[in-house]
Simulated assay, not measured.
Amino acid sequence: MKLYSYLNFNGNCEAAFTFYAQVLGGKIGDKMTYGESPMADQVSDEWRSKIMHAQLILGDQELMGADSTPEYFEEAKGTSVLIAVEDVEKAEHIFEALAENGTVKMPIQETFWAARFGMLVDQFGTPWLVNCDRAA
């Protein structure tokens, strides 16, 4: 069994996944627009270029997402995507990049459990936790 995070966007999934690939060092895998899908005739012309499914590959892990049509879109609440990083400098770099044009909820800092930990909501509305454990 595998668990995947699946992010929903309000029309900006392609921009978000391009940004995440750049920041996290991943690559875009599968990507399909509504216009390329069998349901192309069920969405407005404006939505045919929006992403029905996208995959970001990060080593042996995947992050997935899509643009939810307006009647189904809901902002993320009560969840976050956790990034576990082994290097303090890398954790700080990822945090600062994701925080660009977003909202920092807790600045990245040393805590009693981590060498660095921070919380933010990025410019696309995705809540992130960035954690770098203390050395063993």
Results as ranks from 00 to 15, higher is better:
Y6T: 14
N8I: 04
F9Q: 02
G11M: 09
G11R: 00
G11I: 05
N12I: 10
C13N: 04
E14Q: 15
E14L: 11
A16D: 07
T18N: 14
F19T: 00
Y20Q: 00
Y20C: 01
A21E: 04
A21S: 11
A21H: 14
A21Q: 13
Q22L: 14
Q22D: 15
V23A: 06
V23Q: 01
L24Y: 03
G26H: 01
I28S: 03
I28C: 00
G29P: 06
D30G: 10
D30E: 15
K31T: 08
M32T: 15
M32P: 14
T33H: 08
T33M: 09
Y34V: 09
G35P: 04
E36I: 13
S37V: 13
P38T: 05
A40W: 10
V43N: 08
V43W: 09
S44R: 12
S44V: 08
S44D: 12
D45N: 13
D45W: 05
E46P: 00
E46T: 14
E46I: 01
R48W: 00
S49G: 04
K50A: 04
I51Q: 06
H53K: 04
H53T: 12
H53I: 01
H53L: 13
Q55A: 06
L56D: 04
I57H: 05
L58M: 08
L58D: 05
L58Y: 01
L58N: 11
G59T: 11
Q61W: 00
Q61V: 00
E62D: 15
E62C: 09
L63T: 02
M64F: 12
M64N: 04
G65C: 05
A66I: 10
D67A: 02
D67Y: 11
D67S: 13
S68H: 11
S68M: 02
T69I: 15
P70F: 05
P70N: 11
P70L: 14
P70K: 08
E71D: 15
E74N: 11
A76G: 01
A76F: 03
A76Q: 03
A76M: 12
G78V: 03
G78L: 10
T79L: 11
S80R: 09
I83Y: 04
A84H: 09
A84W: 00
V85D: 01
V85M: 14
E86W: 03
E86Y: 04
V88K: 13
E89F: 01
A91S: 02
A91V: 01
E92P: 07
E92F: 09
H93E: 15
H93D: 14
I94A: 07
I94M: 08
F95E: 07
F95D: 09
E96S: 11
A97H: 12
L98K: 07
A99I: 03
A99H: 05
E100M: 00
E100G: 01
N101Q: 15
T103L: 09
T103P: 00
T103R: 03
V104K: 00
K105G: 02
P107H: 09
I108Q: 01
I108E: 04
Q109H: 02
E110I: 10
F112I: 07
F112M: 02
A115E: 10
R116L: 02
G118D: 02
G118M: 07
M119E: 09
L120V: 03
D122V: 08
Q123P: 04
Q123G: 13
Q123N: 13
T126A: 11
T126R: 06
T126S: 06
T126M: 07
L129F: 14
L129N: 13
L129I: 09
C132D: 02
D133V: 12
A136H: 07
A136W: 00
A136D: 08
